[in-house]
Design a protein around this nucleic acid. Structure first.
Lengths: 117, 117
DNA sequence: GTAAACATTCACGTCGGCGTGAGGGTCAAG
DNA sequence: CTTGACCCTCACGCCGACGTGAATGTTTAC
């Protein structure tokens, strides 16, 4: 499929998809005319990218991680032992972030609840 | 106390504290010579600010919210009914964000677990 | 009264994930 | 063969919470 369809199917802008390719997160083939050609698997790939970006990982780290989740079963495969320390660090950061967000939400809840009306 | 002490006690840089004042999040008194003078309550206030900033709220919204959590009991007090819609929106955004982060963390966990060694 | 520690006000720099045109090719249908 | 729809490559813009000096003034301890 071409970039427009991938954009529609993922809800990600074309600009963002081109940016992802530039950052090594996608490697579409090309038509003779220079059009990018994506595969069905790229839809899932883009979803993973967005998820990890939303979690605060950099495109650089994601680019290194992606080869480790190549095939069918979502995750398995190669396994990149050298990335484990980084992934653990991100994991802990995410956990801390979740706790902060939870605390902040509690604060908001208390403020909302305390509103006189 | 002066800015250096507040910075030490909150772990927030002096630059950030000045920025918070500029954004209306703090209103320190001044000495004759122009030095900012903060109160003990400002320590808590700064913690709240950081918490809400970390949760993705803008300084502008936080500035509007702070008068609603003035006094002792952390939150109560004035109550700003007109802010409730905004706070609800942020609350929902935070909830969605927590879910995303949780999903991303699960993905990381699976990748870490799938590492061959 | 003087020096060290502490503070002040600008004001430009940063960073990263895109948004947003501009100017111009490619492709499929009729 | 032409006309949309679709795509391409630059390349500057943006945003927001500060970082980072530079040049200067204030306090306090001795």
């Amino acid at each position: 499929m071409r970039i427009g369809e991938l954009a529609r199917r993922t809800g990600v802008s074309e600009r963002a998809l081109r940016y992802y390719e530039e950052q090594g997160l996608l490697q579409p083939a090309r038509t003779a005319g220079g059009y990018r050609v994506f595969t069905a698997a790229d839809v899932e790939r883009v979803r993973h990218v967005r998820l990890l970006l939303a979690a605060g990982l950099s495109t650089a780290l994601i680019a290194e991680m992606l080869p480790c989740m190549v095939p069918a079963a979502d995750v398995l495969a190669p396994g990149c032992p050298e990335l484990v320390p980084y992934m653990n660090r991100e994991r802990d950061r995410i956990t801390a972030s979740i706790e902060e967000l939870t605390t902040a939400r509690d604060l908001l809840d208390r403020m909302i609840a305390a509103t006189p009306v």
